[in-house]
Write a protein that binds this DNA or RNA. Sequence first.
DNA 1: GAAATGAGTGAACATGCGTACACTCAAAGT
DNA 2: ACTTTGAGTGTACGCATGTTCACTCATTTC
Lengths: 210, 210
Amino acid sequence: MTESAPSASRQAQKERTRQAILASALELSHEKGFAQVSLRQVSRHAGVVPTAFYRHFESMDQLGLALVEQSFSTLRRMIRDAQRDPHVFDNIIDAAADVLVEAVKQSKAHFAFVARERVGGPEVVRTAIRHELDLFVSELAVVLARLPNIENWSTEDVQMVSRLFVRNMVSNAEEVVEMPDGRPDLEEQIKEGARRQMRLIVVGFRDWRS
Amino acid sequence: MTESAPSASRQAQKERTRQAILASALELSHEKGFAQVSLRQVSRHAGVVPTAFYRHFESMDQLGLALVEQSFSTLRRMIRDAQRDPHVFDNIIDAAADVLVEAVKQSKAHFAFVARERVGGPEVVRTAIRHELDLFVSELAVVLARLPNIENWSTEDVQMVSRLFVRNMVSNAEEVVEMPDGRPDLEEQIKEGARRQMRLIVVGFRDWRS
DNA sequence: GAAATGAGTGAACATGCGTACACTCAAAGT
DNA sequence: ACTTTGAGTGTACGCATGTTCACTCATTTC
């Protein structure tokens, strides 16, 4: 980023370039997967010479890890916001389906990144994503454990339901991401599917009592 | 494959080289993903000069499609064998869990390929895999529809259960594939998880009746 | 047995890559 | 005002890649 603003505090400009690199990597990853994106391509797309890349990340792997971090912080913020919404308590399922579809649509790029690189990315990136998802399962379990019908379940059961929910979230996120752009009907269909699946999990669990 | 057997019918030798290329691609894909494997690497690993590659596949994309085909024919053979096993009828769930884990262990490479390239691979490969999985959902639906408790369900419900089963199969296959080698305990754990999840789906569906 | 076929060879090419190095030249620190 | 700092530049390198082309020579065809 040679000089777009006439001047900016030195570190502000640096941060701006850093974000440009991150955004470029995210965008380029969408077409062919992070692993096929080269350092030179990212730099070029960010409007910077390849060597400048190293001022911000010491390798493409590190860039990948930064993207994982960015993606999950986005995800976490959304879940936190959703929890504040009071109507989540009386109908978690519909709310979750709504939140999921909306969240994925809003930051499609990050969700796509996680879904793709979780299995297709470089080793270090895959590991980081798995770790974050495991964390996320535990976090969700805490939230779930406070819910009316669930509060007297065993820890393992709650953990398992949480795992199923996250797994379904990932699967549904994959679907939303693959969704063509101007098709709100498909979106509703996926939402409905997500609702059904979650209801299935909850109903199944209640009638089964581990 | 210059000449390993002193002589072999011309086309037999060609087929052998073809298989060597397929096997090499599968093996190399396991470490870094199909998309990062180069034509030259595959050729080298198959013991053949790069130009010879073109005698068998017109591009890496075509090689990828051939691998998809090979993987799914493996998968289908396994399901067909499993259906012959009579005890599948009285307890589909446990049987399915067994079959899944066993099948995945036996042809780990192919399952890993499908799981990875389904989301991480080149466009054409992803499309092919999705298509095969959709087919597979429909095929499984036919099998399920014949089952005792399910025969009077609506077509959509059967299709949806089938989709859930396949989705779970894929997820569990991912887990088995990621499983370290000498850990039969983990294996049993995954099997148990698969059993629970499938039971959940079935129980949930029965008590819900669409 | 001579001719045709075609799987596999080997050299050559243009291109894109990651990284090293010496550099510029404003902003920040003094 | 001066020096120092460090984000971004430009050149140059060695290397792996996909694809081309003219080739060999054992097997198949006649």
